[in-house]
Amino acid sequence: MKEIIHNVFIIEREGKEILATKSKYGSHYGERKIGEFREWIPSRSKLAAMILKGHIIDIKPDWKVLYLGAASGTTVSHLADIVDEGIIYAVEYSAKPFVKFLQLAEERRNIIPLLEDASTPWKYNGIVEKVDFIYQDIAQKNQIEIFFANIDMFLKDGGEGVIMVKARSIDSTAEPEVVFDRVVEELGEKLEVLAHGSLEPFHKDHIYVHVRKTK
Protein backbone atom coordinates (compact mmCIF):
# COMPACT_ATOMS: atom_id res chain seq x y z
CA MET A 1 0.00 0.00 0.00
CA LYS A 2 1.44 3.32 -1.05
CA GLU A 3 0.14 6.87 -0.64
CA ILE A 4 0.89 8.75 -3.84
CA ILE A 5 -1.15 11.90 -3.19
CA HIS A 6 -2.79 12.96 0.06
CA ASN A 7 -5.43 10.28 0.69
CA VAL A 8 -4.80 8.60 -2.67
CA PHE A 9 -3.44 5.08 -2.41
CA ILE A 10 -2.36 2.22 -4.59
CA ILE A 11 -3.70 -0.79 -2.77
CA GLU A 12 -3.35 -4.45 -3.47
CA ARG A 13 -6.46 -6.44 -3.94
CA GLU A 14 -6.61 -10.04 -5.09
CA GLY A 15 -3.13 -9.75 -6.51
CA LYS A 16 -3.99 -6.63 -8.50
CA GLU A 17 -3.00 -3.07 -7.82
CA ILE A 18 -5.88 -0.66 -7.76
CA LEU A 19 -6.25 3.04 -7.20
CA ALA A 20 -8.36 4.20 -4.27
CA THR A 21 -9.00 7.18 -2.07
CA LYS A 22 -9.25 7.06 1.69
CA SER A 23 -12.76 8.08 2.57
CA LYS A 24 -15.11 7.96 5.48
CA TYR A 25 -18.05 8.12 3.11
CA GLY A 26 -19.91 5.37 1.28
CA SER A 27 -19.95 4.44 -2.39
CA HIS A 28 -21.25 7.14 -4.72
CA TYR A 29 -21.34 5.69 -8.23
CA GLY A 30 -21.19 1.96 -7.65
CA GLU A 31 -17.48 1.80 -6.89
CA ARG A 32 -16.28 -0.83 -4.41
CA LYS A 33 -15.70 0.08 -0.82
CA ILE A 34 -12.65 -1.72 0.53
CA GLY A 35 -12.28 -1.04 4.22
CA GLU A 36 -11.75 2.68 4.58
CA PHE A 37 -11.01 3.05 0.87
CA ARG A 38 -13.15 3.79 -2.14
CA GLU A 39 -11.94 2.30 -5.40
CA TRP A 40 -11.22 4.99 -7.99
CA ILE A 41 -12.16 3.59 -11.36
CA PRO A 42 -10.06 4.94 -14.27
CA SER A 43 -12.63 4.16 -16.94
CA ARG A 44 -15.15 6.29 -15.06
CA SER A 45 -12.88 9.14 -14.00
CA LYS A 46 -10.37 10.80 -16.31
CA LEU A 47 -8.41 12.13 -13.37
CA ALA A 48 -7.91 8.57 -12.13
CA ALA A 49 -6.86 7.57 -15.64
CA MET A 50 -4.28 10.37 -15.71
CA ILE A 51 -2.82 9.27 -12.39
CA LEU A 52 -2.64 5.65 -13.50
CA LYS A 53 -0.91 6.77 -16.67
CA GLY A 54 1.83 7.95 -14.33
CA HIS A 55 1.19 11.67 -14.15
CA ILE A 56 0.81 12.49 -10.49
CA ILE A 57 -0.14 15.99 -9.37
CA ASP A 58 0.57 16.76 -5.77
CA ILE A 59 -2.86 18.07 -4.85
CA LYS A 60 -2.68 19.58 -1.35
CA PRO A 61 -5.36 18.84 1.23
CA ASP A 62 -6.16 22.53 1.73
CA TRP A 63 -6.42 23.50 -1.94
CA LYS A 64 -9.33 25.53 -3.20
CA VAL A 65 -10.55 23.94 -6.40
CA LEU A 66 -12.80 25.07 -9.23
CA TYR A 67 -14.25 22.07 -10.99
CA LEU A 68 -15.91 22.64 -14.37
CA GLY A 69 -18.17 19.92 -15.70
CA ALA A 70 -19.00 18.19 -12.43
CA ALA A 71 -21.75 16.01 -13.97
CA SER A 72 -22.99 13.45 -11.45
CA GLY A 73 -19.90 13.80 -9.30
CA THR A 74 -17.87 10.66 -9.98
CA THR A 75 -14.53 12.45 -10.03
CA VAL A 76 -15.59 15.18 -7.60
CA SER A 77 -16.33 12.56 -4.95
CA HIS A 78 -12.69 11.43 -5.01
CA LEU A 79 -11.32 14.94 -5.29
CA ALA A 80 -13.37 15.79 -2.21
CA ASP A 81 -11.59 12.96 -0.37
CA ILE A 82 -8.26 14.50 -1.36
CA VAL A 83 -8.89 18.15 -0.49
CA ASP A 84 -10.44 17.26 2.85
CA GLU A 85 -9.43 20.62 4.33
CA GLY A 86 -10.16 22.59 1.16
CA ILE A 87 -13.18 23.57 -0.88
CA ILE A 88 -14.44 22.46 -4.28
CA TYR A 89 -16.61 24.82 -6.28
CA ALA A 90 -18.34 22.43 -8.65
CA VAL A 91 -19.95 23.88 -11.79
CA GLU A 92 -22.32 21.97 -14.03
CA TYR A 93 -24.89 23.36 -16.43
CA SER A 94 -27.11 20.38 -16.99
CA ALA A 95 -29.77 19.72 -14.38
CA LYS A 96 -30.26 15.98 -14.85
CA PRO A 97 -26.90 14.65 -13.65
CA PHE A 98 -26.86 17.29 -10.94
CA VAL A 99 -29.71 15.55 -9.12
CA LYS A 100 -27.28 12.79 -8.24
CA PHE A 101 -24.55 15.31 -7.63
CA LEU A 102 -26.64 17.09 -5.02
CA GLN A 103 -26.75 13.92 -2.92
CA LEU A 104 -22.98 14.07 -2.83
CA ALA A 105 -22.94 17.78 -2.06
CA GLU A 106 -25.40 17.25 0.78
CA GLU A 107 -23.14 14.74 2.48
CA ARG A 108 -19.74 16.37 1.88
CA ARG A 109 -18.94 19.54 3.71
CA ASN A 110 -16.31 20.75 1.22
CA ILE A 111 -18.43 20.95 -1.93
CA ILE A 112 -20.22 24.07 -3.17
CA PRO A 113 -22.59 23.09 -6.02
CA LEU A 114 -23.29 25.61 -8.77
CA LEU A 115 -25.75 25.03 -11.60
CA GLU A 116 -24.17 27.44 -14.04
CA ASP A 117 -22.76 27.59 -17.55
CA ALA A 118 -18.97 27.44 -17.36
CA SER A 119 -18.72 29.59 -20.48
CA THR A 120 -20.13 32.56 -18.54
CA PRO A 121 -17.81 32.82 -15.50
CA TRP A 122 -18.91 36.39 -14.81
CA LYS A 123 -22.25 35.01 -13.69
CA TYR A 124 -20.66 33.29 -10.70
CA ASN A 125 -17.63 35.44 -9.94
CA GLY A 126 -19.33 36.88 -6.87
CA ILE A 127 -19.47 33.36 -5.43
CA VAL A 128 -16.25 31.58 -6.37
CA GLU A 129 -13.05 32.75 -4.69
CA LYS A 130 -9.51 32.70 -6.10
CA VAL A 131 -8.49 29.07 -6.40
CA ASP A 132 -5.30 26.99 -6.44
CA PHE A 133 -6.49 24.50 -9.00
CA ILE A 134 -8.91 24.42 -11.91
CA TYR A 135 -10.05 21.11 -13.33
CA GLN A 136 -12.10 20.98 -16.50
CA ASP A 137 -13.83 18.08 -18.14
CA ILE A 138 -16.32 19.50 -20.62
CA ALA A 139 -16.63 17.90 -24.03
CA GLN A 140 -17.43 21.04 -25.95
CA LYS A 141 -16.10 22.63 -29.06
CA ASN A 142 -15.04 25.82 -27.30
CA GLN A 143 -13.70 24.09 -24.22
CA ILE A 144 -10.30 25.78 -24.47
CA GLU A 145 -11.92 29.19 -24.55
CA ILE A 146 -13.97 28.27 -21.49
CA PHE A 147 -10.84 27.06 -19.71
CA PHE A 148 -9.03 30.34 -20.40
CA ALA A 149 -11.97 32.45 -19.29
CA ASN A 150 -12.16 30.68 -15.93
CA ILE A 151 -8.40 30.74 -15.44
CA ASP A 152 -8.36 34.48 -16.05
CA MET A 153 -11.19 35.00 -13.64
CA PHE A 154 -10.33 32.64 -10.79
CA LEU A 155 -6.89 31.02 -10.84
CA LYS A 156 -4.21 32.42 -8.52
CA ASP A 157 -0.85 33.27 -10.07
CA GLY A 158 1.22 30.11 -9.89
CA GLY A 159 -1.97 28.07 -9.65
CA GLU A 160 -2.37 24.95 -11.72
CA GLY A 161 -4.97 23.51 -13.99
CA VAL A 162 -5.85 20.30 -15.73
CA ILE A 163 -8.00 20.11 -18.83
CA MET A 164 -9.31 16.91 -20.34
CA VAL A 165 -9.61 17.29 -24.10
CA LYS A 166 -11.70 15.15 -26.34
CA ALA A 167 -10.47 15.29 -29.92
CA ARG A 168 -13.81 14.57 -31.49
CA SER A 169 -15.64 17.39 -29.77
CA ILE A 170 -13.11 19.98 -30.92
CA ASP A 171 -12.88 18.84 -34.51
CA SER A 172 -14.64 15.68 -35.58
CA THR A 173 -13.04 15.53 -39.00
CA ALA A 174 -9.34 16.00 -38.21
CA GLU A 175 -7.03 13.29 -36.90
CA PRO A 176 -6.93 13.27 -33.08
CA GLU A 177 -3.15 13.77 -33.04
CA VAL A 178 -3.46 16.91 -35.12
CA VAL A 179 -6.17 18.27 -32.83
CA PHE A 180 -4.09 17.52 -29.74
CA ASP A 181 -1.00 19.26 -31.12
CA ARG A 182 -3.08 22.30 -31.90
CA VAL A 183 -4.66 22.31 -28.45
CA VAL A 184 -1.35 22.00 -26.60
CA GLU A 185 0.09 24.78 -28.70
CA GLU A 186 -2.90 27.02 -28.04
CA LEU A 187 -2.70 26.41 -24.29
CA GLY A 188 1.04 27.04 -24.38
CA GLU A 189 0.52 30.53 -25.76
CA LYS A 190 -1.01 31.74 -22.52
CA LEU A 191 0.03 29.17 -19.94
CA GLU A 192 3.00 27.07 -18.99
CA VAL A 193 2.32 23.51 -20.14
CA LEU A 194 3.73 21.22 -17.45
CA ALA A 195 2.72 17.92 -18.99
CA HIS A 196 0.34 16.30 -21.40
CA GLY A 197 -0.43 12.79 -22.51
CA SER A 198 -3.04 10.38 -23.70
CA LEU A 199 -5.64 8.65 -21.54
CA GLU A 200 -5.65 5.43 -23.57
CA PRO A 201 -6.74 2.74 -22.96
CA PHE A 202 -9.15 4.13 -20.37
CA HIS A 203 -10.60 6.89 -22.55
CA LYS A 204 -10.31 6.81 -26.30
CA ASP A 205 -9.08 9.90 -28.17
CA HIS A 206 -8.69 11.93 -25.02
CA ILE A 207 -5.68 13.72 -23.61
CA TYR A 208 -4.96 15.56 -20.39
CA VAL A 209 -3.01 18.79 -20.32
CA HIS A 210 -1.54 20.03 -17.07
CA VAL A 211 -0.81 23.76 -17.00
CA ARG A 212 0.36 26.48 -14.68
CA LYS A 213 -0.57 30.16 -14.67
CA THR A 214 2.51 32.32 -14.66
CA LYS A 215 2.55 36.09 -14.38
Binding site: N125, G126, I127
Partner: peptide
Amino acid sequence: FKNASNPEALPFNLP
Protein backbone atom coordinates in the same frame (compact mmCIF):
# COMPACT_ATOMS: atom_id res chain seq x y z
CA PHE B 1 -26.50 34.62 -4.18
CA LYS B 2 -28.54 34.62 -7.37
CA ASN B 3 -27.28 38.07 -8.31
CA ALA B 4 -23.60 37.54 -7.57
CA SER B 5 -22.52 38.52 -11.04
CA ASN B 6 -19.88 41.07 -12.06
CA PRO B 7 -18.52 42.02 -15.48
CA GLU B 8 -14.88 41.70 -14.39
CA ALA B 9 -12.90 39.52 -12.02
CA LEU B 10 -13.06 40.72 -8.42
CA PRO B 11 -9.90 42.59 -7.36
CA PHE B 12 -10.02 41.00 -3.91
CA ASN B 13 -10.40 37.54 -2.47
CA LEU B 14 -13.95 36.82 -1.35
CA PRO B 15 -13.55 34.99 1.98
